[in-house]
Design a protein around this nucleic acid. Structure first.
Lengths: 252, 252
DNA sequence: CGCCCGCTTGACCCATGTCAACGTCGGTGG
DNA sequence: CCACCGACGTTGACATGGGTCAAGCGGGCG
């Protein structure tokens, strides 16, 4: 759904109606759909277009020769996979779906055209790119310094807050369509240990996790035990000085 | 030394004499110098300019409340700290020197001016930014999946190859001006374990490390035991189709 | 109905952490 | 010139978080 993308960009700055229309358009052409656990692009492939997530979850990952697999990041609805990736000749990692995924393929020229005509979108895309990198840095800290419990708690905080930012939570709940193996591949833990950690989080009343439904009754508490600070997500409308303020603007 | 910067950009594409002159100029104004172990910028500060490393080593890092510290990346001569960082309101991490460091402060307008006039430099800066992110992803894999030995070996391979790309190696040797504590903070290991791992690498003849001098007698062998593949550094002049080819070009 | 995938649990093991002591070297001040 | 000191590296003994293996379980789907 293009609205997740627009909602995401508006975390950074308000857009004009024309901006929104352009973003909507670009997200509505060339829509593709993939079933769960299919590669969108594989390590070694030449990057061909920018993918914009509309619905469903995907992930970047890398596999070592002996089969060890690391999930490098999650893509949620509204996320954009690597604007400007075409500068590189080949992918150094793979991207695959987790759930069924609908996404829009955006061609290089389309994106250039969009950014030329809509400077505020350009700024917002810069912001989205910088946040993506900031998330990657935080994952480095997560894997390097935190204990198993903290790692999983931290990841759950991040996912919940990112989902909330695009309107995909309901109160203190959200969908979490990943297996414990996936969580392990993302946190560098074995699936068995992820299970133990989840039990512990449940035992402490920090999460309720049944099937694919995650509830975080007290987000602050979970943040505290996970040493989570949301500053790296830069969600406070940091580009608000750029807010579009034409007459066509819906005042919120 | 501006030549490291230029040499780095030319890993991606050849530059015209005018491009080189412009890059040299921007790297030669507003040069600052800091002693070892001083913050260049601290988490929470507003980012003010882009820093270009001329000499010496620095690192990004993040500290948890209880003192655990993760080095998130290393900056080597020729590296640029976060072009376009000014889109964000505050730093979500700190940058500090490791050795004495000389660097150039580049103002936002200067950088915009440079990229407007020199499209090939713009492309090269995109490349450098994408490689920086690729390195961050690889660190995620390193911390999440590799054993202690592999982690340290992998880091040494990366540093050696990056140094070689800017002309800072001599044969199979380079300077490694970091302590074992630093290596531990970068690899998520304790300094004691880093020491044990280094002993083992020495024992296997994979490295010679005396004082600050690192020698890697057989880089391929070290790469093999570390499961290191250089593809993520995108060093094969991937932008060679953009090579400047005016008459002013020094044919190499 | 039965199978398969994902979750759960227990027993055991190992990589890595922690703690503590000691060594070494270069710098500095008396 | 020597004595001291602090930072860094090294080593051993011991502790532990998390991995591995294996078995059982439960529910959704063909």
């Amino acid at each position: 759904m293009p609205q997740h993308f627009i909602r995401k960009l508006e975390q950074f700055t308000r857009l004009s109606a024309a901006d929104r229309r352009a973003a909507w358009d670009i997200a509505s052409q060339r829509v593709r759909c993939l079933r769960p656990h299919q590669d969108i692009i594989h390590e070694g492939d030449p990057p061909e277009h920018v993918n914009l997530m509309l619905d469903g979850w995907a992930c970047r990952y890398k596999t070592l020769e002996d089969g060890r697999r690391q999930i490098i990041s999650f893509f949620l609805p509204g996320d954009l996979c690597d604007p400007h990736i075409f500068v590189l000749r080949e992918m150094d990692h793979s991207i695959s779906t987790i759930t069924q995924v609908r996404f829009a393929e955006i061609a290089r020229e389309q994106l250039l055209d969009l950014t030329e005509r809509h400077p505020r979108i350009t700024q917002a895309l810069w912001w989205e790119m910088l946040v993506t990198v900031a998330v990657q840095r935080e994952w480095t800290v997560n894997l390097g310094q935190r204990t198993g419990l903290e790692r999983v708690g931290h990841l759950l905080c991040e996912l919940f807050i990112r989902l909330r930012a695009v309107g995909l939570t309901e109160g203190d709940s959200c969908l979490l369509p990943v297996t414990q193996v996936d969580l392990g591949d993302a946190t560098g833990l074995s699936n068995v240990h992820v299970n133990r950690v989840l039990q512990e989080l449940r035992g402490n009343g920090l999460i309720v996790l049944k099937g694919r439904q995650l509830t975080i009754p007290d987000l602050e508490a979970l943040q505290r035990v996970s040493l989570f600070s949301a500053n790296y997500l830069h969600l406070d409308r940091e580009g608000r000085h750029l807010d579009a303020n034409g007459t066509d603007l819906l005042q919120a």
